[in-house]
Design a binder for these strands. Structure first.
Length: 573
DNA sequence: GCCGTTTTCGGCCCGACTGTTTTCAGTCG
């Protein structure tokens, strides 16, 4: 059995199927089954192709005969009969509308059926000319919010999340490296700088033929639909799937200069050019010159060294201030000894305590902090006091197995509207540590929200603040919050703050990490994993920490288990 | 569509907010 569509592709197709079914007014439980299956596929940690091929994927919870067939069809043919027929029935504009906050299926269907609207531009017009506000239970405020939602969606549609971009770039680099006369293909641009969202894919290709000839070879090899903006060194290729990628071609002796140029950022390049100029060099687009002498730069290290600079890791190349500064020792994935923030089957995760413990051990960690949702998170199966006792017994049993990993009893406790936590103090005392997060009431004023957080920070049971600003990248802005006040209070109280490594969040933002460090805040990298596949999130959290210039000493889960225990104890004392 | 020591049918996740209404449907997390 050949597999032509990968795990991420299948997951995305099933999620889209769920949207189609939902918009058609299908049974919500059928829709939910598709959504759950999409998550199961997306979070599958093993060899997905093999599991589809040998049928073992059908054993997964929530995968019955119907979804097994859809998954198999998608994976082996890249198509689905159900998908094709639904796509023909549901206008694509309605799917777009699902991305507007405040618009659900019921309202979209109502808009479609009563006003005959099925595109975003038509919806925008109807919101402006007052037609929308005349609908039952719609009003001026709703129309205004929909206009805001459309604007947000427009802006967001130019970007993609970093994990999607990274996966595309990886596949593209692999395809390009197989093209004749290509010596190497390197992802550059925002993907290489590890920004949280990516607007444009950039690839640097080292080749031993003229660019014009190379673009022809590439077109033949990887299904290019259109070549735009071609000149002697680069071209923008529009690929079959709709992706647009900028390809820059270089001979080996200029790879360093070209890679630096293609990686950016603009501010970094400006600072670098200025530094070069004051040292008697010229950094033109494709090469380095000292006066009129050509300086070969076969790699980036050579270029930075020639300019009297240490090599600057791409993650740090942002506002230009990094040029001329010492390069800090940045945290790496291998520095992390602890795995924090994950959900099990006790709330909305899909693996057991033991499965997670074994998987996390396998990935090379020494300790694990389990944090299911607390009781007010009803939608996520938040834990009632009885569940807690059962889970604690289970964690004790797993620790007794001596798997080579220490499992800590944690909770992701909701911070309620008034800043209180979700259980009485005697229950809170039973946890080894607590991540406190906001999951409701996002629309408070900055003053109210800040007071809410400050009260949570003041609670001695709180170890770490989870996803502190609540943003969902390309979906929802952060709530109003005085972060400086939070940093100062957390730093003083010995409360850690999370970089949530879920690529939909990446919250804290790397731009504020320096400020957090100045306030003495210990940063934890939290995977927010809901299954074993979520272990891979950590890599994105590490990238954000690196962009913020953080080293292992500033990361809570770079400590060993005893160090983590000591941090919790010091905070409680 | 999936699941099952309540197992082949009947149930599946729920509480709170928002914007609209003047009692509540729709949306969200």
């Amino acid at each position: 059995m050949t597999i032509v569509m990968d795990r991420a592709g299948v997951a995305a197709a099933i999620e889209r199927l769920a949207e189609y079914l939902e918009l058609k007014g299908e049974n919500t439980f059928r829709v939910r089954a598709f959504r759950a299956a999409a998550k199961t596929v997306d979070g599958y940690a093993g060899d997905f192709a093999a599991a589809v091929a040998d049928g073992s994927f059908a054993q997964m919870k929530g995968i019955g005969p119907a979804l097994r067939d859809v998954i198999t069809e998608l994976a082996t043919t890249g198509r689905s009969e159900l998908f094709e027929s639904l796509r023909a029935e549901v206008p694509p504009g309605l799917v777009d509308m699902l991305g507007i906050s405040g618009l659900g299926v019921a309202r979209i269907r109502q808009i479609h059926e009563t006003l005959g609207i099925d595109t975003l531009p038509d919806l925008e017009a109807a919101a402006r000319d007052g037609r929308l506000a005349t609908l039952p239970r719609f009003g001026a405020r709703t129309a205004e919010n929909i206009l805001k939602g459309i604007a947000f969606l427009r802006q967001a549609s130019q970007w993609r999340l970093c994990h999607h971009a990274a996966e595309e770039a990886r596949a593209l680099a692999e395809a390009l490296s197989r093209v004749p006369h290509v010596l190497a293909a390197h992802p550059a641009g925002e993907v290489r700088r590890r920004t949280e969202v990516v607007r444009e894919l950039v690839m640097v290709v080292v080749a031993d033929v003229a660019p014009e000839e190379l673009f022809r070879l590439i077109s033949d090899a990887i299904g290019v639909r259109e070549i735009a903006g071609q000149d002697e060194r680069h071209a923008t290729l529009k690929l079959g799937g709709g992706t647009s990628v900028q390809v820059v071609v270089t001979p080996p002796q200029n790879l360093g200069a070209v890679l630096v140029q293609a990686t950016g950022s603009d501010a970094h390049l400006a600072a670098l050019a200025e530094h070069a100029r004051t040292n008697g060099f010229t950094l033109a687009g494709t090469a380095l010159w000292e006066g009129s002498r050509f300086v070969p730069t076969p790699d980036e290290q050579t270029l930075y060294r020639a300019l009297g600079l240490p090599w600057i890791p791409p993650e740090l190349r942002e506002d230009g201030s990094e040029v001329g500064r010492p390069v800090p020792r940045l945290v790496e994935r291998a520095d992390l000894k602890g795995f924090l923030h994950c959900h099990t089957t006790y709330s909305d995760g899909s693996n057991s305590v033991e499965e997670l413990a074994r998987g996390v051990r396998e990935a090379g960690y020494d300790w694990l902090g389990i944090t299911d949702h607390s009781r007010s998170a009803g939608y996520a199966g938040g834990m009632q006091p009885d569940d807690l006792r059962r889970q604690w017994d289970e964690i004790d049993a797993v620790n007794a197995l001596q798997l080579g990993i220490t499992v800590f009893k944690g909770i992701e406790s909701d911070i309620l509207a008034d800043g209180a936590l979700d259980y009485p103090d005697d229950v809170l005392d039973g946890f080894d540590f607590i991540i406190a997060s906001v999951h409701s009431r996002f629309t408070m004023s900055e003053q109210e929200m800040t007071a809410r957080f400050l009260r949570a920070i003041a609670h001695p049971a709180v170890t770490i603040l989870g996803h502190p600003t609540g943003r969902l990248l390309l979906q929802r802005d952060a709530y109003a919050l005085d972060l400086d006040a939070i940093f100062d209070a957390a730093g003083a109280a010995g409360v850690g703050i999370e970089i949530n490594a879920d690529p939909h969040r990446l919250d804290l933002d790397w731009r504020v990490l320096r400020r957090a460090r100045e306030a003495g805040v210990m940063i934890s990298i939290g995977a927010d994993a809901h299954n074993l596949g979520g272990l891979a999130n950590v890599e994105y959290g590490v990238a954000i920490a690196r962009k913020g210039g953080l080293g292992p000493d500033e990361i809570l889960n770079a400590r060993d288990a005893a160090g983590f225990r000591a941090f919790v104890a010091a905070r409680r004392a």
